[in-house]
Design a protein around this nucleic acid. Structure first.
Length: 232
DNA sequence: AACCAGGACGTGA
DNA sequence: TCACGTCATGGT
């Protein structure tokens, strides 16, 4: 069993299923609650990899990937709630929303001037897809969509096996000396995809577990405790 | 009260 | 290519 898969098994055993990507409409559902999760609305759905089930849920994930860029999820929840209150969590509705109003509604996520324009662009693209699965290159050509956002959309909104590499992933792998500082995004992604079965469920769970583990061990830690993954 | 959060873009060298 | 400044609200 390779090292990455060992890490996955240990993280899964340690933290349990994470239930990404969270959806606003599940906030008041009776799905099992993970008390460790950030965000108050509990849109997570641990163990259920069938989401998104509707086009609007798919669209919500797409715009959430833009909103959450360099921003905490609690702030994203506020913006999503604002949009939902105006019935804008659907592609054509959002497309017809005025830019100033959109900026106002997503203000809690920060960078709202940029992100409002990005949302407009990706909404137009989403509608043009007409239900088809986007290609990676197409997504990367959209302003506001970099590699991580692109792969998040493919993995969580479209269930395509693209591994998401975020700053947490790099931080952990570098600390474990699995990668070097100058490894590029696609190199690290290839490392995961070459050593794991091409299973979108596995990719979703693993990435979410990495985020959870990074929050536990790599942020606000002053006790100097070392990452238990080091002793593998 | 500085610092960070589920990044990406534009610029200059 | 690459390092660096910029975008901005809300939590600790």
């Amino acid at each position: 069993m390779n090292q990455l898969f060992k890490i996955y098994k240990i993280l899964l055993k340690t933290y349990g299923q994470q239930g990404w990507w969270p959806l606003l409409e599940l906030s008041n559902s009776s799905l099992p609650k993970n008390p460790n999760k950030t965000g108050s609305l509990n849109g997570y759905h641990p163990g259920d990899y069938s989401y998104p089930k509707t086009n609007d849920q798919q669209f919500e994930i797409v715009i959430s990937t833009i909103l959450t860029q360099n921003t905490s999820w609690t702030n994203v929840e506020k913006a999503l709630a604002n949009l939902q209150k105006e019935n804008l969590l659907s592609p054509f509705a959002l497309q017809s929303c005025s830019l100033p109003k959109l900026k106002q509604l997503i203000k809690p996520v920060g960078y709202f001037n940029q992100k409002a324009n990005y949302l407009k662009e990706i909404t137009k693209f989403y509608i043009s897809l007409n239900g088809k699965v986007p290609k990676r290159e197409e997504l990367l050509n959209i302003k506001g969509v970099g590699p991580e956002t692109c792969d998040s959309i493919l993995l969580y909104a479209y269930k395509q096996p693209f591994f998401v590499i975020d700053s947490y992933t790099k931080r952990i792998l570098y600390n474990l000396k699995i990668i070097s500082k100058k490894q590029k995004y696609e190199d690290i992604q290839k490392l995961f995809q070459d050593n794991l079965p091409k299973d979108y469920k596995l990719y979703q769970e693993f990435h979410a577990l990495i985020v959870e583990h990074a929050k536990q061990f790599y942020t606000n830690r002053k006790d100097g405790k070392t990452d238990f993954l080091l002793k593998l």
